[in-house]
Design a protein around this nucleic acid. Sequence first.
DNA 1: CCGCCTCGAGTTCT
DNA 2: CTCGAGGCGG
Length: 669
Amino acid sequence: MTDLAQAKQEIARLRAIINHHNYRYYVLDSPEISDAEYDSLMQELKQWETEYPQLVTPDSPTQRVGAAPVAAFGVVVHPLPLLSLGNVFSEEELLSWYNRISRLLGQPQFDLVGEHKIDGLAVALTYVDRQLTTGATRGDGSRGENITSNLRTIRSIPLSVPPEAPPRFEVRGEVFMPKAGFNQLNRERAEEGLPLFANPRNAAAGSVRQLDSRITAKRPLDIYIYMLGYAEGRPTPTTHWETLVYLKQLGFKINPNNRLLTNLEQVKQFCNQWQEKRDGLPYEADGIAIKVDSLAQQQRLGNIRHEPRWAIAYKFPAIQAFTKLKDIGINVGRTGTLNPYAILEPVVVGGVVIKHAALHNEADIRRKDIRIGDTVIVQRAGEVIPEIVGPVVSKRTGKEREFTMPSRCPVCGGKITRAEGEAMHYCSNAACPAQIRERLRHFVSRPGMDIRGIGEKLSATLLKEGLVKDAADLYYLKKEQLSPIDRMGDKSASNIISAINNSRKQSLARLIFALGIRHIGEETADILSREFHCLDILANASVEELTSIRGIGTEIASSLVAFFKLDENRRIIRKLKDAGVNPKEEAVPVKELPLAGQEFVITGRLETLGRHEAEARIKALGGTAKGDVTRKTAYLVVGTEPGSKLAKAKTLGIKQLTEEEFLTRLRMR
DNA sequence: CCGCCTCGAGTTCT
DNA sequence: CTCGAGGCGG
């Protein structure tokens, strides 16, 4: 055998192996070999190909790195236009679509296929003689852009197909960027100071339309194929569902969440089920595509204009919306932080009207280049909390104003400072009315002294009416003083007074936390209470004494010392003590408790008790409760609708507890 | 000094 | 829930 012939054979062998592993990894998501083993196979193939460049073919797995930039994309005329789907936004509209189809088909029941409608961009891939020859965007449906060299870099798109494939055919699919990849990409871009992508869809579209496909190659893109456009020279299946199965056999990546649905009830269920679970999906889905299964029936139903009558998109309530940023306001937090927030033209996102959104700090506003007057993208994704993703730069008129943090506190006119290297601005006036109000609110809050009946509203009123000047004054309030307050009945007044009285018995940890000392949260307050047993000793502790405690460093120590040094604060503590608020923490030998040394994490909702109560109970028995799973976690308590912690626990092999098992350990069963 | 792990602070709407 | 920042070990 000649050297060339041997090389040919070796190259063919390596390509077959690599293609197989590519398929396992990118299409099936179940690799059989390690990344290192894969890399070494690739390396070997590259070596052969460098030695014998005449044997390099376009479908070689080494050819997915992207090619040199092009000046512009060519135009591709779609032999069969790519249609867009009609939308329905409610179950009623879905029902009327179904009824219309049912009437046209003359039968009450027929098979359908439900698929996730992924927010990406539609592409058409043409294969001639088993090779990928053209990849094009949807464009206006009849003509799109030729982005073949970019699509070739997507690993889950086969460059060639098995011999049993039709000699000439076109498939269609949705190119998208998985959420994880999108977040990672934006993190990297933020670090490099590049503008961020607003959402995975924009990121995918931007990536696929790169003139330099080497850039596309570095983007985390994926594809799901959702239909066969046309096929010549081979018989193909007669239903949509079987077509998907067939395409899968040809090596295309098909969304495993697709379902064959046999009646309206199943259709509804499919839609509702995924609407609820959409946040948990690895990709952004904006709805469900429902398609009539039989291709013959599809044909009979036909199209109206550019929309097929045989399919419909059931759209989820939007999680993103455009609106106008009217102004940027500033809240002053209890520690004096200035928190800018967006004042928005009200807009419905995810079923609720959004008027405000947090903007965190000045640097963040700069980084996102948000200006007053901008049209902005508001989103309310996984979380409930709205956020401004970024401005729509193309809608700028030139009248937008950049935001700058004022030099004087908008509430009290006090001086604003920002420490070198820190993100937050602070109002330096501890007597700032806004700070006083927020501190009082914090004092009475649930995790603080837990005084029911006093919230945001009443805190403000009490201060405004001069009934209290600080938290300690609460304990000197008389019922009669409350009566003149608007809408304050006799009953409410006595409830509030008794709530205040009951709070005298709160633990030392709660009291320390309630004081609202900078850097002292629930956890640190707990440590301090166990270390010092009463407020007086803590108040006189030195920086050295404090820093010797595990978990307390210089920042926290000096924050504490500074707090207790202020006459104002010493007076408050004195007043609290005089009013009988002076809890003692008894030394408890933690080691003897049943849950000593065991770390618990809770995910999801528990039926019998709230998360906070559960955590308090764990701590009371000597265990610890943490917010997130780490290697040190002993147990993950799994409630209903568990979150991402469950997945993490699985990968770390953390023992899981059902609520029942958990309660047993808490000695509650 | 860097990278991990934890904790703290603030957040919207019903 | 997310981001920022403090604490601490390597």
